[in-house]
Simulated scan of single mutants.
Amino acid sequence: MTHNTRIRPSLKARLRRGVDKLRYETGDRTISEASLTDKALEDYLDKHGL
Rank of each mutant, 00 (worst) to 15 (best):
R23Y: 08
E42P: 00
G18V: 00
S35Q: 04
R29K: 15
K39V: 09
A34N: 03
L41N: 10
T30W: 03
T5P: 01
R23A: 08
K21S: 06
K39C: 08
A13F: 14
T30S: 13
R8F: 08
R6Q: 15
K21D: 06
E25G: 03
K39G: 10
A40P: 03
A40S: 12
T5Y: 00
A34I: 04
L15K: 08
G18C: 08
L15M: 14
Y24G: 04
E42S: 14
L11S: 14
P9S: 12
R17G: 11
L15F: 03
E25A: 10
K12I: 02
E33Q: 12
H3N: 08
R23V: 08
T5G: 06
S35D: 04
N4Q: 05
I31Y: 00
T30C: 07
E25C: 10
L36V: 02
I7N: 08
R17Q: 11
V19R: 02
L22S: 01
R29C: 09
S32K: 06
S32H: 02
R29H: 12
Y24Q: 02
R17C: 05
K39Q: 11
T2I: 06
S32N: 03
V19C: 01
T2K: 10
R8P: 05
L41G: 12
K21C: 02
R23E: 04
R17H: 09
R17L: 15
D20H: 08
L41A: 05
A13C: 09
Y24F: 12
I31Q: 01
E33C: 05
E42V: 13
D20A: 15
G18H: 05
R8D: 15
L22Y: 05
R16V: 11
S10P: 04
R29I: 14
A34R: 13
A40T: 09
I7K: 05
D28T: 10
